[in-house]
Computed example of a mutant assay.
Amino acid sequence: MAFENPSRDRIKQLLMDAQQVAVVGLSDKPDRVSYMVSEAMQQKGYRIIPVNPMVTGEILGETCYPTLKDIPGKVDIVNVFRRSDQVVPVAQEAVEIGAKVFWLQLGIFNEEAAEIAAQGGLEIIMDRCIKVEDSILLPGGK
């Protein structure tokens, strides 16, 4: 059976319930889409947790971690800015840390990663921009 994203009502509920969003592939460069999307989500009240092994220090005022497993505390959404062929290990880590949602940004789609996440009990959203969905579904904020 072909993958299908959750309904808009369900996505809205997932966003309303989320506090901590780990962003895998978050760049420290302000002109990158990952930075702009994460900054906008941060301004909407989400705590953004940067995950990028190439960056030490902080991004958007938050400590950057090399992997999801290095993050202390819980993660609600794992938001991924990586190429489709690089997301399977990210799905495995998302399961290992007990995240609730595995979200692949616009243009990112991987059935194997989705299957791993689903078997681990996560809800999966693929090929959708979290900022766009939040703007449409929660225009006034949470």
Rank of each mutant, 00 (worst) to 15 (best):
Q105R: 00
Q105T: 03
D127L: 07
Q86F: 12
L137G: 09
I136N: 13
M1I: 12
V78T: 12
V51Q: 05
M16P: 04
Q13T: 15
V80W: 15
G121W: 12
M126D: 03
E93G: 08
R82E: 15
N5P: 14
V75F: 13
I11S: 01
K29E: 10
A40E: 03
P6N: 13
R32K: 13
G121E: 09
V87F: 11
L122Q: 07
A40Y: 00
S135R: 10
F3P: 07
R8Y: 14
V33E: 05
L104Y: 09
I49W: 02
F102C: 07
V90G: 00
N110P: 01
F109N: 13
C64E: 00
D9E: 15
F81K: 02
A2E: 05
V132F: 08
I59D: 03
K29H: 09
Q43H: 01
I11N: 02
Q105M: 01
V23S: 04
Q20G: 01
L68Y: 06
D76Y: 01
I77L: 12
A2Y: 02
T63E: 08
Y35I: 05
V75A: 09
A117N: 06
S34Q: 07
E93L: 12
I77C: 04
L122R: 03
F109H: 14
G25M: 05
Q43N: 05
G98P: 10
A40S: 05
A18F: 14
Q105D: 12
A22Y: 06
F109C: 13
V75I: 12
M36V: 07
